[in-house]
Nucleic acid binder design. Structure first.
Lengths: 152, 152
DNA sequence: TATTGTTATACTCTATAACTATA
DNA sequence: TATAGTTATAGAGTATAACAATA
């Protein structure tokens, strides 16, 4: 679009620069991720957090949930058992298949996710508060690009 | 939204928008990090990769290394033992302190890190290749901002 | 007595294999 | 016979506690 002010489209980024960008961006993202998990985490373990988030999207069977998280069914069975014990996930019989168990998030589970996410977001927001509006704009645009790339 | 070239400084981003950006950017970074680890990883476990990277910066004692990685000394002792068995870390006596052990990366360790990083960078680069130069520029700027923020 | 590092033991999350119940 | 899920057992990685060697 504009090649004067933004300085974005006028230049041709070559392969070496893409490689360098890939390296630097990857490190930056991994550093953010690591610090969020280390400095903003609470008492919900990462794998529990992830599984609970899947059930927030919709109820799933154990096998579906294991496939989502790319772990074995027995492993997910343990994880789910812990979440059920904690009262954030409920088991229910599948009316159409006596073997299957439908797992769903409870109201407590939804609240727990909200608290967890709020803590993580609050930590991230504190980091961003030190930036100015121009930086915020760049990051907002970059976020949209990353969302587009990662959706594939 | 940009009246002049950069289009960044003219707008005032309010608190709610910072919170939203924090949320979206955090998720994007965590998604990148997760996919890099899942889809570009090799046979070096994440904690081993991390510890080896610390030793690439400089030689450290076990206690120093444990503090870097924020795990206990006994845990790091196990991790280091595995890396030593693999031949990518070397133990050496500290001439100034008979209790301490100086850990350093070996030539094989440096090569292993190079391979690991190349795989991760290559995965990331493949994702970025689908973007145009304007997107690359935005991401490069965002990377610099994130590096600045995360350095604190 | 304090510090560095290892070993002993236990808990969690992962896996595969064996098992029960249902389709 | 095949599928959904649980339980048995084992292998990592984490922890704390106890220990050895050194400062």
């Amino acid at each position: 679009m504009s090649e004067e002010g933004s300085g974005a489209t006028g230049e041709q980024i070559d392969q070496a620069e893409v490689t360098r960008l890939a390296h630097d961006l990857r490190l930056a993202c991994m550093r953010v991720s690591r610090r969020v998990r280390f400095e903003a985490s609470s008492d919900l373990a990462p794998h529990q957090f992830s599984a609970l988030g899947r059930l927030e999207q919709r109820a799933r069977t154990l096998t579906e949930l294991a496939e989502c998280e790319r772990i074995s069914v027995p492993s997910m069975s343990r994880t789910v058992a812990a979440l059920v014990d904690r009262g954030v996930v409920a088991r229910a019989a599948d009316p159409s298949d006596g073997r299957a168990v439908v797992l769903s998030i409870t109201a407590d589970g939804v609240r727990l996710l909200e608290v967890e996410r709020a803590q993580r977001d609050a930590w991230m927001a504190r980091q961003l508060e030190e930036l100015d509006a121009a930086d915020h704009t760049v990051l907002a645009r970059a976020t949209q690009i990353l969302e587009r790339v990662m959706a594939q």
